[in-house]
Design a binder for these strands. Sequence first.
RNA 1: GCUGGGGUAGCUCAGUUUGGUUAGAGCGCCUGAUUGUGGAUCAGGAGGCCGGCGGUUCGAGCCCGCCCCUCAGUACCA
Length: 578
Amino acid sequence: MSKKKNKPKKIRPEVLKGFKDYSPREEIARQKIVSVFKEVFESFGFSPLQTPALEKIEVLKGADYGEDNLATIFNFTGPEKVEMALRFELTASLARFVAGNHELPLPFRRYQFAPVWRVDKPGFGRYREFTQFDIDSVGTASMLADAEIMAAICKSFEKLNLPNYKIRFSNRKILNGLAKMIGIPVEKAPDVFRVIDKLEKQGLDAVIKELGAGRIDKSGDKIPGLNMDNEHIILMREYISVYDLIVTAKHELKKEHDINVEISDDDIANFFVNYNPTAIRYFIKREGREEGIGLGEEQSTAIRNFLTIKKEDQLSVLRYAWSFMVERINKFQSGELGNFGDNKSSEEIKCVFDEGIKEYSTGLFELNEIRKYLEYLNVPEEKTIIDITVVRGLGYYTGPVFETYLDDVPEIGSVFSGGRYDSLVARFSGKKMPAVGASAGVDRLLAALLSKKLISADNTVSEVLVTAMDSEFSGEYIKILNEIRDAGIKAEIFLGETRNFTKQVKYADRIGVPIAVILGSEEFENGQITIKNLIAGREQAKEVSDREEWLKAENIQVTIDRKEMIDYLKKLLSKIKS
RNA sequence: GCUGGGGUAGCUCAGUUUGGUUAGAGCGCCUGAUUGUGGAUCAGGAGGCCGGCGGUUCGAGCCCGCCCCUCAGUACCA
């Protein structure tokens, strides 16, 4: 027990793995993002809710959580031996709040931004503690609720000066219905959806391979496949290609023909119902470079007509998807069932098929409703794309789903996404309650925007630094400081020990404050004040290499009467900020 | 979790091939030239458990084993 030297052990200044500090530069930018979201959602009438960071484990995980289920959350036994965990999302707490407050007027509309915690592997913009911004409408089945959230998301990105965003949206009912329509076994469907979800990131080839035998990734690691049979893979490929093909075909054929013909809605509808599935197949062949398009006269005309549709993109996709279903019905009725599993009776098969059709078509109708509401809400059509390959990973989505992508930072995937989850509140109340919501990962968005310099990055909020050269005037300095602050200008006084003026200006430069207010004995004698524009000074430094010349460059600062100070500062600030 | 790259000064990295005394560079930082002016320039200075633990050796930043961290890809993601 006798240590000769009791050297205090130095503690390494480190944070936990996956956690991070936010420097003023980052935090200022982050707060800007949050305040824009907040402003926009409040303008849509959503009110703030806040809930505890710690919740009972069953609130977060449901009554029948298992061990592996807990691997990715911070869970522990707290005081009084209560099993608890840090929340890993905000929706469960919302559901608990709604279920526990019976007097709450419904629909309940709230936003919430708060930190959440997950034991994930950290990566770029991915941390174990991060801020989520959530927005939800609980207790309404109206598609207007879905459309409204999408509209608010659009507005947010406009306000953040990120106009290159797109929302892709779909409906889980369509995929669920599709699986039943083409005879994918129920237990296999989630796997299929999971693979389709990778489309945006991994591309069509990778997805097709994973539906089949699997693939090898860039590091040489093996990714196992689902080993679906060929017939199903071909059908999935046709389905997946619906949106892509419209874009590709439109682009290609427009180049060739430069078509501009007026056509009627009937023509379009006719085209979709009668020709589309065949046409899709031809396009697929062409994409696979097996052969040319090889369309008949009639089909060519129909496609040409289709390509002249100018403002009907969303409708086009819906009609494509509809015709895909019609073709399945035709085949079903003519007895070409395809692979539905051998040990099912034809009665069972018909039942599943009918269910599928019902779900699929309901999904399309709901999307069409959202489409209309988006139009009423003045959301530009090119910003919202119906893309029936959108899945969303979360298991609990039951209806429309949507994902927002920023073209400027495609590598981070979707940035503000959500959908309809009709059974989450039921965990508490036993009753189904319709709800729709969306969630943004603020920190991932921030990391991407900062790295691409798409958001301003100031190191300080200070607008003015009052330098302090002469300790005998400290009362005067503070008087001036008060005056500036009272005028609503963010100001600080130099608090360092030194009176060395060079150091003070250097400090001002390094924290990035744009204006320095200077008072020495000369100014005091004349009742004046010197105001220096540090931003302009920085520009000037680029051109001047000689020190003497640099010191003489005085047009970046003025000496004025003290009474004019506030007016001058205000003008200068508004000039700098614009 | 899996596959691969990496960990040496605040940052970016050299040094590891072939083990050998005091571990280097650039940038940044501090002090001064310059206590009434940021940049540039000049002079000086501080700053290293060479990721950790164990092993081999007279001797390890370098070789061996285990672990940790990190970057990329990928899986999972309520």
